Structures are given as structure tokens and as C-alpha cells.
Simulated scan of single mutants.
Amino acid sequence: MATTNKFWLTNLILTIFLGTLLLGGCSSGDSSQSSSSSDNLTPVQSIVEKTSSKEMFDNLPRLEGMAKVKLMVNGSPIIIELNGIEAPITAGNFVDLVQRGVYNGLVFHRVVKSPQPFVAQGGDPLGNGTGGFTDPETGKKRSIPLEIKLTGDDEPTYSKGLGQQSGIMSPDVVLKHSRGAVAMARSQAPDSASSQFYIALAQLDFLDGDYAVFGQVLEGMDAVDGIDQGDIIVSAEVIEGIENLKK
């Protein structure tokens, strides 16, 4: 029993550490997206539960199908498949930003490989983990809702975490944090993701349900493993499925 309790406590500490680490590198510098209490989130969550995703977020790009993106990093291609069937808003946001050229020249500002492989995170126009995409047409930062689909559900759940950080120990999500999964980084507020994304360097089950996975590395995982902090995304382009992007 003592051994079991020690193992459980070790895993709990590791989960908290890695979860906090990911949160700390997201757009925490945007105070408009932060929340000091759960009460501040209740009205948003209540509205989302009563309103369809199309009505709530019809001003955001959507990917109605699949697409593929190629990142060039350190002279090597990384092919990512984006899943707009299960995560239409999250995947649509990413494809739209790729198409706009937002990621070209940006760095991976956070790469965590020890004490065990964690993530390679990039997509911040400021390069320091506090920025996001500002729409040049409106002059405002674009934020997207947390989008999680559970197995058996017809539609994703929006603006509400469904994983360990929300007290659900084993959420049965459709898109999981397998090695090579691509997901959106965010601050503590559920709807604070913008342009920062990360690639899982290992299977990270404890993030399932609290961060939105929207893609998977199909080719070039060896190149992903070779990414170091400060490495540049030389280019990002949509190579398949651009016709599925709806604005």
C-alpha cells in the first residue's frame, strides 16, 4: 500500500508540474483572457451549453474535413494532418494562420525534453510565450474556444475542460495526446488559445480533455525530436485540403 501511495503521489506531482509548465508558456501575458475565479467563467460556460458552436463561433474559420500542413524546420519537412471533422474550429484556426503566413519565421520558444520528453511549443509572434495572433482587419487578438470531443458525442464540448484539471481522471476523448499529437497551448482561461501550438514528444495522457488536440504528425517525427529551443519554422504551407477551410 505504501508503494502504491508513493507511486500515485509521484505521478500527481509530475502531472501538476508538467501541466503548470505548459500553462506558463501560453498567452498568460494577455490579462483580458485570464480569470481570477471560476465564477467569471460560469456565464460563458452556461451560454455555450445552450448555444450551438456555429452560433457562438461563426466568426471563426472552420475546417470542414481534413487537411495537411508541411512545416520546414532545420531543413527537414514535418507533415501534419489536421482533423477538422473532430475539431473544426481548432483545426480551422491553424490552417487559416498557416495560409496567412503567420508561422513563417517564428521560433519554437519552449522545448522540454528532460527530465522526460514533453513538448516542442511555438507559434508565438512575440517569441517569448506571451503572444498570439492579432487580426490585421480588426486590430484585435483572435482567441478560440477550448474544443474537446468525447467518444460517443455528436458535437465537441466548448469552453470547458473535461480532463484531470477538471477532476475527470480518464476522459474518453476522441483526439488524444499520443506521441506526435499537435494541440493548442493556452493560459488558464479555457478560451485563451490563439496561435501557439505544441507537438507532443511523448504520450501525454494527463493532458487529454484539458487541451485541444487537432492534428497528428504523419511524417518527420525524427525532425520533431531534433527541435531545440530557438529553432525556426522556416515555412509552413497547406499542402492538402485547403478547400475544406471555411471563413
Rank of each mutant, 00 (worst) to 15 (best):
A181G: 09
P190C: 01
G127W: 11
I148R: 01
Q99D: 15
S187Y: 02
P145I: 12
V182A: 02
Q121K: 08
L146D: 01
A202G: 07
F197K: 08
V182D: 00
D172H: 12
G161C: 05
S194Y: 00
A185K: 01
N128K: 14
G167Y: 11
M184I: 06
P117T: 07
Y103G: 00
F197M: 05
T138Q: 03
S195N: 01
A181I: 11
Q203L: 07
N93G: 04
R110F: 10
H109K: 11
K141N: 03
L126Y: 12
G129C: 08
L175K: 08
F94E: 01
Q116I: 14
Q116M: 15
K141S: 07
L162S: 01
P171K: 02
K141M: 14
V95W: 00
P145T: 02
Y103M: 10
V119F: 07
K160G: 00
G132V: 03
G129P: 05
V107N: 13
D153V: 04
K141H: 01
G129N: 02
D135V: 13
N104W: 03
V107C: 12
P117N: 10
A185E: 01
N128G: 11
K113S: 12
S195Y: 05
Q203N: 15
G105F: 09
K113Q: 12
D153E: 15
S194E: 00
D154W: 03
G152E: 09
Q164Y: 14
S170C: 13
S192R: 00
Q121C: 07
D124S: 08
V95N: 02
A200K: 06
Q99H: 13
L106F: 06
V119H: 06
R110E: 02
S187V: 00
G167T: 08
Q121L: 13
D172V: 06
K140Y: 06
G167V: 11
D154F: 08
S194V: 00
F197H: 04
G101V: 05
L204G: 08
A193F: 08
A185Q: 00
L162H: 03
K149I: 06
M184L: 13
Q188R: 14
E155V: 14
Q116R: 15
I199K: 10
E147V: 04
K141D: 02
G163A: 10
D135L: 13
M169F: 13
A193I: 03
Y103N: 02
F108P: 12
L97D: 02
T130E: 12
F94P: 11
Y158T: 05
F133H: 14
G161H: 09
V95K: 13
L162M: 12
F118E: 03
N104K: 15
Q116N: 07
L150V: 11
F118T: 08
L150A: 04
P190K: 07
G105R: 13
D191I: 00
A91I: 06
D124W: 04
T134A: 11
V182Q: 03
L162C: 05
P156V: 08
S170A: 15
S192E: 00
D153G: 09
V102D: 00
V112A: 02
G161M: 04
F94T: 10
S192H: 00
L175V: 04
L204R: 09
F108N: 02
Q99W: 08
T151H: 12
Q99M: 12
V173W: 05
R100S: 09
R186F: 01
P171Y: 05
A183D: 04
G152P: 13
S192L: 02
K176P: 10
Y158V: 13
D135G: 12
Q121N: 01
